[in-house]
Design a protein around this nucleic acid. Structure first.
Lengths: 114, 114
DNA sequence: CACCTAGATTGACAGGCGTCGATGTACGGA
DNA sequence: TCCGTACATCGACGCCTGTCAATCTAGGTG
């Protein structure tokens, strides 16, 4: 833990030292969450679902507006669901997705706020 | 443009239609901004700078705590600066970086908020 | 039962991105 | 003026990811 490799030069620009306020694990977790949102297609998907009449949408309503194939849309929905941003409910043949507002609040809260 | 391949089944799950509330261009711009933050190393960099005594930090204070080479840190700082999240001021030999709070507020405001 | 449809899964491919070593540039001190 | 240092840039390599075509699974309907 002890860091001796600092030298003894007086003009080392007076830094803070190697205390990292955000450890690697937490940074990676937060980055994974942000990565889920940091994609144009997924942002459009979220906007589409959020703008749906009952706040929910099935996959068949999402493929056509984005001009993407169904597997691609399914792939993005899985990523968003895995990130805890979407909930999935199978109702009959269709799968209905809706946003999880609490999770988005977490994202906003996790960003650096000086 | 005319889509005939829909069949005439009455139970098409009653979708919203192809009106995309977030157009591709805006989605890509927002995604680029979020991508800049969606990286563990850059999150740690932001945390380090935010936690610095005067709210600013030079590069030499950032390479060692993260265990990365100087070119890599410089690369990440350039991405964050290009995204408008960091400001750069050359003071003598050293370059000082600091957060731009307004930009982070923009990020928070751009996220889906149901 | 057989068939159709909604959606998930798989495999493959191209492009983007994080990281490093090597080199370039500019500022300050002897 | 020459040298050392702080930082940026370049080129290369490996991994991750967005996309598609093809296939699989399961629920509804005749």
């Amino acid at each position: 833990m002890s860091v001796v490799t600092q030298g003894s030069v007086g003009s080392t620009c007076a830094s803070t030292g190697p205390a990292v306020p955000l450890d690697r694990g937490a940074a990676e977790d937060l980055a994974d969450l942000l990565k889920a949102v940091a994609d144009p297609t997924r942002l459009q998907l979220l906007a589409l679902i959020a703008a749906s009449p009952a706040g929910e949408s099935c996959v068949c309503a999402l493929t056509e507006p984005l001009g993407l194939t169904q597997p691609t849309v399914s792939h993005h929905l899985r990523i968003l669901t895995r990130a805890g941003l979407l909930s999935r409910e199978q109702r009959g043949t269709w799968a209905w997705y809706r946003l999880i507002p609490k999770r988005f609040a977490e994202v906003r809260a996790a960003l650096p706020a000086p």
